[in-house]
């Protein structure tokens, strides 16, 4: 907008009966931007910044709502407890395992799905929908549905195994198999998001590159590794960051599939935070656990950002 237009408009605005909005026009960009960004800022301050401060503060308190005692300063006690708590460590490692398995897993499966969806079928909408349905399905629903798939007597997974003459598995009766089930479910659920992002990336790659490669006599597989993959890097990097951060927060699928069992073997960090906060009302300890998860997320984000910067 040119200054002349703006000046003229401001003058006109002042001449009309000035509503409140008219007065906004007197502001410079800075002041207007302040008002426009204010709601976002207020929300972020109220729901992110203030809670983060309170979280860190609470993690140094001994505060249990069931004890009836007022909060008291506990120093590093919650953190010392955390490092000595076997369930914290198992939930920490479960979270790491789920992340390390399902993020690359979803990437590989998502890549395959995206390549298929990129085939010029006539019914494109159906294929796109096939990617959107798993994406839009609530994680909790997904957990319930797959819990039924893996049910030991009447689930379809064991049914297929039985029909193939293979031994069946009581999936939720052992840590290892329950983890396999949780990871498979998570990969199914999240690969479609990966596929959608990769698909968009695929569609931005100029065809001429492939034609040139064709002339050079490069096969399809070589084309994939020399053209497709490098050009997809930015899209993949972004998808990986998002996916990793959400994988660290894994809660819905294990909660609906195993509730953490057998024992506490499939409890994830997010589940343990919720349990201490809501079931035990031990807010001090729950806060310390949340700070641990916060730190973990930060480390991962910084790691990714550095990797992207180095790659760029």
């Amino acid at each position: 907008m040119s200054q002349a237009v703006a000046d003229r408009q401001e003058t006109e605005e002042r001449q009309t009966v000035g509503g409140r909005f008219a007065r906004l026009m007197d502001m410079g960009d800075g002041a207007l931007a302040f008002w426009l960004l204010l709601p976002t800022a207020v929300l972020l301050l109220a729901i992110i910044v203030y809670p983060v401060c309170r979280l860190i503060y609470t993690s140094f308190l001994s505060l249990s709502l069931t004890s009836g005692l007022p909060a008291s300063f506990a120093g590093l006690q919650n953190y010392r407890d955390m490092f000595a708590d076997p369930v914290f460590w198992s939930s920490f490692w479960n979270t790491v395992i789920i992340t390390v398995v399902t993020v690359p897993g979803a990437l590989v499966v998502g890549m395959a799905l995206a390549l298929i969806a990129n085939i010029p079928f006539r019914q494109r909408w159906a294929f796109r929908l096939a990617l959107l349905v798993p994406w839009a399905l609530p994680l909790a629903f997904c957990g319930l549905i797959f819990a039924w798939f893996f049910q030991s007597d009447y689930g379809i997974v064991n049914d297929v195994l039985r029909r193939l003459g293979l031994p069946t598995v009581i999936w939720f009766n052992s840590y290892a198999w329950a983890t396999v089930a949780i990871c498979l479910t998570t990969i199914w659920k999240t690969s479609s998001f990966m596929a959608l992002i990769i698909l968009a990336g695929l569609q931005t790659i100029p065809r001429s590159l492939y034609e040139a490669a064709e002339i050079d006599g490069a096969g399809r597989v070589r084309q994939f590794f020399e053209i497709t993959l490098p050009l997809l890097r930015p899209a993949i990097a972004v998808a990986l960051i998002f996916r990793t951060i959400t994988a660290l927060q894994t809660f819905d699928i294990p909660y609906t599939m195993t509730r953490g069992g057998p024992g506490t073997s499939t409890v994830t960090l997010a589940m343990y935070i919720r349990q201490n906060t809501v079931d035990f009302l031990d807010l001090g300890y729950g806060s310390a656990l949340a700070v641990a998860m916060f730190a973990l997320s930060m480390i991962v984000t910084v790691f990714y950002l550095r990797m992207i910067r180095r790659g760029a």
Partner: peptide
Amino acid sequence: ILSVIIAVSTFPLVTLLVPLFQM
């Protein structure tokens, strides 16, 4: 401001369960 918004978009909301519960 844009980077702050991008940073917030990857914020693990789970960690705020305790303070949100308190608030």
